[in-house]
């Protein structure tokens, strides 16, 4: 009898189970304007099975979001794990939708499912992509805006993985500040 290498039939488990959510922001009937859970996965193979069968972000209509969060964390500020958290925010110009959006989002997903932030990956709650006519955004959400060590480590690794030039500054903002901001910009807690 032939012995088959287990590598060829056992799926590769991820550290976490993840849930991919979809949100459409411009629906005409507000109560139906909700997050829709697309699917959950906890192996490398199932991640790709999902990723390969959904629309690229650049093909979504304006007003749509994808959110990838650890299973059990809802993709909103109000969730217990997000309430005292914040996000590393990447803002993209309109031109970058063609050149960078899909590439940045995939890289973000790979950082999350691959646990790229070492022990600080425990601070990661998820990531969100907002597709908007005025400019797209991608963010990694972490659980505690006071955990400077985790936030700065995650920010450094993330910036490097995206290939953002050192001279470009990215900011980390608490959800509390974003929720209560008066103008269009939120002050950065870390850069």
């Amino acid at each position: 009898q032939k012995v088959v290498n287990p590598e060829t039939y056992i799926k590769h488990p991820l550290q976490n189970r993840w849930a991919l959510w979809f949100f459409k922001n411009d629906c005409t009937f507000a109560p139906l304007c909700v997050f829709v859970l697309i699917s959950k996965f906890d192996t490398v193979e199932d991640f790709w099975a999902l990723y390969n069968h959904i629309q690229l972000s650049s093909n979504l209509m304006s007003g749509c979001d994808y959110s990838l969060f650890k299973d059990g964390i809802e993709p909103m500020w109000e969730d217990e794990r997000n309430r005292r958290g914040g996000r590393w925010l990447i803002t993209l110009s309109k031109q970058q939708r063609k050149s960078d959006l899909d590439r940045f989002w995939l890289e973000t997903l790979l950082c999350l499912v691959g646990e790229a932030f070492d022990d600080y990956s425990d601070d990661v709650c998820g990531a969100v992509i907002n597709v908007r006519a005025k400019g797209d955004k991608i963010a990694i959400w972490t659980t505690d805006y006071e955990n400077k060590e985790a936030i700065t480590h995650i920010g450094r690794v993330y910036k490097e993985r995206l290939g953002v030039p050192p001279k470009v500054i990215i900011g980390y903002q608490s959800h509390a500040d974003t929720a209560t901001k008066s103008g269009s910009t939120t002050k950065n807690k870390f850069v």
């Binding site: 039939y9 056992i10 799926k11 590769h12 488990p13 991820l14 550290q15 490398v44 193979e45 991640f47 790709w48 099975a49 990723y51 390969n52 890289e107 790979l110 499912v113 691959g114 646990e115 790229a116 070492d118 022990d119 990956s121 993985r161």
Partner: peptide, 20 residues
């Protein structure tokens, strides 16, 4: 330890035939 996968490892599985 954590189950960490680097980007090259993950990308290597993108077009693998699906496990059933």
């Amino acid at each position: 330890g954590k189950r960490q996968y680097n980007r090259e490892f993950l990308l290597g599985f993108q077009f693998m035939p699906a496990c059933i």
